[in-house]
Nucleic acid binder design. Structure first.
Lengths: 240, 240
DNA sequence: TCTCCGCAAAATGGATACAATCTCGCAGCG
DNA sequence: CGCTGCGAGATTGTATCCATTTTGCGGAGA
């Protein structure tokens, strides 16, 4: 769905999304319409529109006459979403290769690869470089997605980002080796796409996304509360 | 999103979905709130809730202060959705095989296969048997989906059904050879799942769904108007 | 005749009021 | 002592009203 941030309801939608992703509204918590409307300084009508939107996005659960609650995402659910994202992004590689990537797109990938190389050149992970890295990463995946000429595919992947912590805005920025390997995946994916090797690019992309999921879940298991808080604030600060 | 059809808004959502899928509201047509509210016998408030829901489902387009229009789906878009459905359902096979299918589920698949065999036993396609076939087909795909213990996967596949004619409720019921082959796919998928051969089941499922898409698109190209009208009424009569 | 401006009608967005439903505690009974 | 049923408060669902924006027609001027 196209969002034009002109109406009050759209503003409320964005505000609520941030509140949920940032943890201001806790998973499982019930959403009081009167209370929230007063907090946001609007009436219940646009608020309800926003709530319906977020429920359809999968961030809220709804039950008749019992209102909305913030959806709870188990670790299993997060794993599930990575499984979905991995096959969708892999399919994007197949389609892009089949159609044939444009030179403009391949050049854009090269520029993004260079950006990543520069960030990693120092041999260590500078926390200050995280936002730039995140932006590079999002653009890289977006560029492939756009090249498919399959807007639905992009829509579906965007939906996976509605699950907290699955977004490619969330990066585990603490292990140089892992990040370096991840960027090496980017290099190999770009090379495969340039060569028209769709299945090869798809295979790399599939593992690329799946491993990110495995890593995230491992961290969540090791330190559920700490990792969760850190990652949520990480995501919230990366607003699009 | 869970829909419990208790409220007026939920009823309006379902009514509108049928109107769109059945073609009562034509693609590109503008949706007048006052007019529709009167037609459905309710006020604009629940109607607007329903419109917002369907817009998020992707059946309507929305623009601020200019209301809703019925979304137009090109043939390319339909092709795109089959590409998405094929990889998602294939992934469902992988997951189900990895986890290991329960005996209850395998028995259910066997019963559904038998139902299909019985319908095909006559050696020709009886139009009267279409609803039973459609039900069998939906249940077969659903059973695999449920076995993944990945509710998100089912949610995502359900979203693909919001695109007219992509739903597995829509069957091209005119070529015995093709239907027979399709059911043979079902047999092979079930056998592979029983044997724990996830990748094999996934490969068959992928082709199974993709071919259905190719077939549908070929028909749409041959006789755009006729096939479209026939299939839409086909889908509308198959309400869940 | 064409274009542009402006106003009026229509349609949407939002606020408020009212109805229906649920929640939860308390009292009465077994 | 625990369970059931009732009722008041809280909360959600719907209707109606008003404000804002869009749209389209018509007239004035070039």
């Amino acid at each position: 769905m196209i969002v034009n941030g002109i109406t009050v309801a759209d503003g409320a939608t964005n505000a609520l999304r941030e509140m949920i992703l940032s943890g201001a509204l806790r998973p499982g918590e019930r959403v009081h319409q009167d209370h929230l409307a007063e907090l946001l300084g609007l009436s219940r009508t646009p608020l309800r529109t926003a709530l319906a939107t977020l429920a359809n996005d999968g961030l809220l659960d709804y039950e008749s006459n019992r209102g909305y609650r913030v959806r709870e995402f188990s670790v299993d659910t997060i794993r599930s979403v990575f499984e979905i994202r991995s096959v969708l992004e892999a399919q994007a590689c197949r389609i892009a290769a089949r159609i044939g990537c444009s030179n403009a797109m391949l050049d854009e990938l090269d520029a993004l690869l260079q950006t990543g190389d520069d960030i990693l050149a120092s041999g260590e992970l500078d926390p200050a470089a995280l936002p730039a890295w995140r932006q590079m990463n999002v653009k890289f995946h977006d560029a492939i997605m756009r090249e498919t000429n399959n807007p639905l595919l992009g829509e579906f992947v965007a939906r996976t980002h509605n699950v907290p912590m699955v977004s490619d805005r969330v990066i585990l920025w603490d292990d140089y080796t892992i990040i370096h390997r991840s960027h090496d995946d980017h290099h190999r994916i770009a090379r495969a796409l340039r060569a028209g090797e769709g299945e090869r690019a798809a295979a790399i992309m599939n593992e690329h996304v799946n491993f990110a999921g495995d890593l995230l879940i491992e961290r969540l298991r090791q330190d559920p509360e700490g990792a969760l808080q850190h990652l949520l604030s990480n995501a919230a600060s990366g607003g699009k």
